[in-house]
Computed example of a mutant assay.
Amino acid sequence: MFKKSAKYLIALSLTVSSSVVMAHGGATGIVKERMDAMGDMKDSMKEVSDMFKGKAPYDVDKVREAAEIIKGHSGNALTKLFPEGSMQHPTEAKPNIWDEWDRFTKLADHLGVLGEGLIKAAGNTEAPNEDKGMMGDSGMMGNGHMMGNDHMMGGSSMMGGHMVHTAEEYGKMPVEMVFNMVSDNCSSCHTRFRKEKE
């Protein structure tokens, strides 16, 4: 019985290990660490996005948990995963990260501020509109947002005619708006610093 169980566990662990390796194309070391971190954030973003798309019920606690993961992988926790020259296969990082380190660092730091803002804003919901998500036609901030793709470069956003800089200020906004800002921040970073998938 024990031999049968042991064989099953070995086979299972090999299957799990190989699927993890396949998911990252054989990444090891720091490249694997950052790909794992990006995967955690991607999963968290998808979970919250599904709530706003009406694919899952809105859950304040799950939004806060997802925001904690995003915040936990931001700032120095993110930038330390990109030591200069870490371009081993199968990295998706572009070498310009190190040429534009200040810009990359600002995006990483601002992601932390937005993550904390999302934690604080999680309870700021509006009544869902069945076909249009929680904020109606605007779809988070949709096409009507004021900031464009590089809006996070300065680490602030517009709200009510003044610049927003702190997690506390973001925490007073509608949650879906803050979530969209997190998404925009991620997109700005990916557009600038991640290779296109082939």
Rank of each mutant, 00 (worst) to 15 (best):
G25R: 03
M173Q: 11
S17R: 02
K32D: 09
K32M: 11
T91E: 02
T125D: 02
K55R: 15
G144C: 08
G25Y: 02
I119D: 05
S183R: 08
G39Y: 08
N143C: 07
G112Y: 08
G72P: 07
G123T: 11
P95T: 07
M140I: 13
E33S: 14
L81D: 00
E176P: 01
K53N: 13
G29L: 08
M152V: 11
M181I: 06
M158G: 06
K120N: 11
T28E: 07
I10C: 06
F179V: 05
G75S: 10
K55M: 06
H190W: 04
V21L: 09
L14Y: 04
Y8N: 14
S17T: 13
D102K: 11
M158C: 07
G123S: 15
D109G: 11
D102N: 12
G154F: 03
W101F: 10
G160P: 00
K46D: 15
E84N: 04
K7D: 14
G154S: 06
D50C: 01
T91N: 03
P95E: 14
S157R: 06
E169R: 00
N149A: 13
H24L: 04
V20S: 01
N124I: 08
E65T: 15
E47V: 15
F193S: 05
G112C: 10
G85F: 09
V21F: 07
F2Q: 09
G115A: 00
N143T: 13
L114R: 09
S86N: 11
M152A: 14
M140Y: 10
F2D: 11
G25D: 06
K132V: 06
Y170H: 15
M41A: 13
D61S: 14
S17N: 09
N124E: 04
G155W: 01
G26M: 04
E168C: 05
S74P: 00
E100C: 00
M38Y: 07
K55N: 14
A108E: 07
G171F: 06
D36E: 14
M152W: 11
F82E: 03
L78V: 03
E92D: 14
V21H: 02
R194A: 04
L111G: 09
T15V: 14
R103F: 04
L111R: 02
K4W: 12
S17M: 11
N129Q: 13
G139M: 10
E169L: 00
I97L: 07
T15F: 12
L114F: 03
H165C: 04
K172M: 15
H145I: 01
H165I: 05
S44Q: 08
A167Q: 03
E100Y: 05
A121P: 01
D50M: 07
H89A: 13
M22R: 04
F52E: 00
S187E: 12
G26R: 01
K120W: 01
G160W: 03
M41N: 13
D137Q: 09
H151N: 06
L14T: 09
S49Q: 14
K62A: 15
S187H: 13
G155P: 15
T79I: 05
I30E: 04
G85L: 10
A167N: 02
Q88K: 08
S5R: 11
W98S: 09
A37Q: 08
V164S: 03
E176I: 12
K195C: 02
K62G: 05
E176W: 07
G136S: 09
M163R: 15
D102R: 03
K46P: 00
M134G: 14
D184L: 07
L78T: 05
H165D: 05
S19A: 09
F104H: 12
V48R: 01
